[in-house]
């Protein structure tokens, strides 16, 4: 016990005396590890923004975000590191991959991944990087982070500060997450009736058969006209109530067309 106290005292003494030999040319082990993981992270980020294969970009983003989680661990912010792994690597990247699949991203190389202004973008990014790095290095040249002692970002410390000092923003953030959830659902559902013209576009020849079939009954002009005017509304209504399309094929063309238009107007008012 006393030995441990003595060792701890000695360690405390050495840690208080430690800031003297700081320097760029004598990096500690933590600094070397940070530098190596930082190089991997930065390289993965560069590949993410330059590769022409979209799915590979998402997978390299996983490497960059995981490297950042390791950097948080090296900075003794453990809770942030695991939250980073859970939310970014676990949720955000999966969401991005789903988005890539749902927008039918090409699997191989896509030649138009970069726009024409990539050289201007490169110039802007290089200028911003040069100025930022210069300012940051010049400002914090003589500043060291003391990583010894208890962790600055353990779950204990983070939870205590979060629920003592930051309770109100925390709860407001939960409301924001709920609003984002509802907003994402509403955006996805609003696109549903608008997606039916694109989805039912291959059925357009079937709909074009309808005025032809009615042409056998004799009223060429009117039936063709009502068929033409009622066609988009049929496409629109095909998602909601499919009964109108079948009803039209029974022959009461004009009335069903009017009913469709009434339904369309009602739907327009509904929006």
């Amino acid at each position: 016990m006393t030995l441990a106290a003595a060792v701890g005292h000695l360690a405390a003494d050495s840690s208080t005396a430690a800031p003297a030999p700081h320097g760029f040319l004598s990096p500690t082990g933590v600094e070397i590890a940070f530098l190596l993981v930082g190089l991997v992270t930065f390289g993965a980020a560069v590949v993410t923004v330059t590769t022409r294969q979209l799915v590979h970009a998402a997978l390299w983003l996983v490497v960059a975000l995981g490297g950042l989680a390791v950097e948080y661990l090296l900075l003794t912010a453990e809770f942030i590191a695991w939250v980073q792994v859970l939310i970014y690597v676990g949720a955000v990247v999966v969401l991005i991959l789903f988005g890539l699949m749902l927008t039918r991203a090409p699997i191989g190389r896509s030649p138009d991944a970069d726009s024409g202004n990539r050289w201007a973008a490169l110039a802007v990014a290089a200028a911003a990087a040069a100025s930022l790095v210069w300012v940051v290095v010049d400002a914090f040249r003589t500043t060291w982070i003391d990583l010894d002692g208890p962790a600055a970002g353990s779950t204990d410390v983070t939870g205590a500060s979060l629920f003592q000092n930051w309770v109100l923003p925390f709860e407001a953030l939960s409301v924001l997450l709920l609003a984002a959830l509802v907003g994402a659902i509403v955006l996805s559902r609003k696109a549903q009736p608008a997606a039916t013209p694109a989805g039912s576009a291959p059925t357009r020849p079937d709909a074009a058969n309808v005025p032809g079939g009615n042409g056998e009954t004799g009223e060429h002009g009117r039936n063709g006209k009502t068929g033409e005017s009622g066609k988009p509304s049929e496409h629109r209504e095909s998602g909601g109530n499919g009964g109108n399309g079948e009803h039209r094929k029974t022959g009461e063309n004009r009335e069903s067309g009017k009913a469709d238009e009434a339904g369309k107007a009602g739907k327009g008012d509904d929006r």
């Binding site: 990096p27 500690t28 930065f42 900075l75 990087a129």
Partner: peptide, 16 residues
């Protein structure tokens, strides 16, 4: 740890 390491890495990632 020198504070410049995370600051420089952060600046580079932001510009990326």
């Amino acid at each position: 740890m020198h504070l410049a390491y995370p600051a420089v890495l952060s600046a580079l990632l932001f510009c990326t």
